[in-house]
């Protein structure tokens, strides 16, 4: 399995994501500079966390114009798995690969802490190794993670089962107390209609070893590997088979 981790100027979780893919999971991984125009044959693409272009103008607003984003869009359109974590999620929203927008946290403060998210959908490349309803203890670290979309868009997301992750309490309840930033319907992560593009605000790559507080985030990465195993035909990834795998 080969991962591409896109590096925008200001990305700062690129090394952490690369470390998980290479050292924790023993996979092939390449950091791809945002000015590149090739994903170098990657099987899965991750847009990492950080402050691309300093978050100036709006989070993700400038990064969507980077040359590599055309390739990411093409890759996504062909069914390739694309994961946006935190700032990467914000970039996906700005790029129109996912619906909605991010507002300032309702506390108006940056917030960094471990919390719980519930996995609601397991038919995406990033959750297929999870149990439905599985709770993951993973951290957030953001100032603009307050997910917003028009009511009809939110209704559509819910109807299409596109809400993949939701903030929950330690016992699994979806409550206002468990919502760290004011996101509509406690939404922590969503997917596109084709279910191959996923964005989430929490950082699974920061929770892949017990030594750093939790290994729950591994479920996300193990899902990618599982997806890879089930999508590979011999040595070549056959994109055409991906939706079939997902719809199983």
């Amino acid at each position: 399995m080969k991962f591409a981790v896109v590096v925008f100027p200001g990305s700062n979780c690129d090394h952490d994501t690369e470390y998980v893919a290479r050292t924790v999971l023993g996979q092939d991984v390449e950091l791809i500079w945002h000015k590149d125009s090739s994903l170098k044959g990657a099987d899965a693409v991750i847009l990492p966390g950080g402050f691309a272009h300093g978050d100036y103008l709006r989070t993700g607003a400038i990064a969507r114009f980077s040359p590599i984003m055309q390739e990411v869009s093409k890759f996504a359109a062909a069914g390739g798995p694309v994961l946006g974590i935190c700032n990467g999620f914000q970039v996906l929203l700005e790029a129109g690969l996912l619906p909605g927008a991010m507002l300032r946290n309702r506390s108006l403060k940056f917030r960094c802490e471990f919390l719980h998210v519930g996995v609601e959908q397991t038919d995406t490349p990033f959750t297929m190794a999870c149990r439905p309803g599985q709770r993951l203890r993973i951290p957030i670290a953001h100032g603009d993670g307050n997910y917003y979309a028009e009511p009809e868009v939110v209704a559509q997301l819910e109807r299409n089962r596109q809400v993949v992750f939701r903030y929950v309490s330690a016992s699994g309840e979806v409550s206002d107390e468990a919502n760290p930033n004011g996101s509509v319907n406690n939404i922590a992560g969503i997917c596109n209609e084709a279910r191959n593009v996923v964005g989430l605000m929490p950082h699974p790559e920061r929770a892949c070893e017990l030594a750093v507080g939790s290994a729950d985030g591994l479920a996300v990465f193990e899902s990618i590997l599982k997806w890879g195993r089930e999508s590979f035909d011999g040595d070549t990834l056959t994109m055409a088979t991906a939706p079939a795998v997902l719809n199983k």
Binding site: D16, Y19, H203, R206
Partner: peptide, 10 residues
């Protein structure tokens, strides 16, 4: 400290 990212770089 909740306002500081204290985990990046893992």
């Amino acid at each position: 400290y909740r306002q500081y990212d204290h985990m990046v770089r893992t």
